[in-house]
């Protein structure tokens, strides 16, 4: 247990405080950059896209990284969330003036619908193992995309749904993302999170110590799909336009790649790799033709030579960084004094 905070000094070295401060600082820096128009529209859009991909990848990480199940249809849940939020957003725009409120209402609806879909697919699907579950979720994703295309009276089909209020500002996106990532983080550090991890490690052993693996698999799966629904809602309000192709198999793979490269089971890994994989292609524009080739090559090479991804299952922590720096300086000092002895 952590020591009680008595004075300012204790507060300053409290890990929670450090992490919160850093989050707020990041926000303030980004926000002022935007306010003083040091960031152009293009970068602004990319920033929001990064946040969306963080929500998508950290949520997929619950099912794939922590639970260890192969899910190849995450874009399907994103699509359900996106279309739900878009349709509700369009309908309610005349009645709700406040952007934040409109987003919250639509995002909750998106979350509920995507979560329900997760429950419906997950209940039977989670009986299957490994590749079969992957294939089943892949099939589900394709069905969702086809349904969106075919139910054109509601979704406007392949032509796409336009006129969605573009209310996804950086602050809304940022704090939504922080809220979701923090929730996932805290959840994974509870007894429920441990139960989920233990299923990834060994299902049979997990059952043998009293974990109801069906319930926890489903819980992880539904949580993942709920947050994917929110990610979809963010996407809808950012783009202002939705088409079924945005939620195809390739999108699922893209999210999956982010999780794998970041490290399955590492939230900070997913965050870093979301940033890299959204920005990198933009800077590789000159190599446009090679871009995806490079992408896929990186994926294969990672699997062959660093199968645990960038971060493995570890979390990056600012407080750890501080510790690392102190040990490093200590070592440096030690070496230095040794040197001067001679």
């Amino acid at each position: 247990m952590r020591a009680k905070i008595k004075n300012i000094k204790d507060l300053l070295i409290d890990p929670r405080f450090i992490n919160y401060t850093i989050i707020v600082t990041i926000f303030l820096v980004m926000f002022s950059l935007i306010q003083f128009e040091l960031v152009n529209r293009y970068i602004y859009n990319l920033l929001v896209m990064v946040l969306i991909m963080i929500v998508m990848s950290t949520s997929l990480n619950i099912a794939t990284g922590f639970l260890g199940e192969l899910v190849l249809g995450h874009a399907g849940f994103m699509g359900i969330g996106a279309y739900t939020a878009a349709i509700i957003g369009i309908a309610l725009r005349p009645y709700i003036e406040v952007d934040l409120l409109l987003f919250v209402v639509s995002a909750i609806a998106a979350m509920i619908l995507a979560g329900t879909a997760g429950l419906l697919v997950g209940t039977p699907a989670l009986r299957l193992r490994g590749d079969y579950l992957g294939i089943m979720t892949l099939g589900f994703g394709e069905i969702v995309r086809n349904l969106i295309t075919n139910l054109d009276t509601v979704t406007n089909g392949a032509q796409g749904l336009a006129g969605i209020p573009r209310i996804m500002t950086f602050p809304i996106a940022f704090w939504t993302t922080v809220l979701i990532v923090t929730t996932i983080f805290l959840f994974m550090n509870s007894r429920h999170g441990r139960a989920i991890l233990s299923i990834r490690e060994d299902e049979i052993a997990s059952e043998s110590v009293g974990i109801n693996i069906t319930r926890y698999k489903l819980l992880a799966f539904v949580l993942a799909s709920m947050f994917a629904g929110v990610g979809g809602a963010m996407f809808a309000f950012k783009e202002g336009f939705l088409a079924p192709v945005s939620f195809n198999f390739l999108k699922s793979v893209e999210i999956f790649v982010i999780v794998v490269l970041g490290g399955m089971g590492s939230l900070s890994g997913s965050i870093v790799s979301s940033i890299v994989l959204v920005f990198l292609p933009e800077y590789l524009r000159d190599f446009k033709e090679y871009r995806y080739l490079l992408y896929s090559a990186i994926l294969v090479i990672t699997m062959l030579y660093r199968p645990k991804g960038l971060m493995g299952t570890k979390e990056f922590d600012f407080t750890q960084l501080k510790n690392k720096i102190t040990t490093f300086t200590k070592r440096l000092k030690a070496r230095f004094s040794k040197g001067s002895d001679r």
Binding site: R194, L197, S198, E201, D202, A205, S206, G210
Partner: peptide, 15 residues
């Protein structure tokens, strides 16, 4: 059959 990539303490806490 241990939870190999979890700490010794967490192995117990899962149970």
């Amino acid at each position: 059959r241990l939870f190999k990539n979890m700490t010794v303490l967490d192995n117990i806490k899962v149970a």
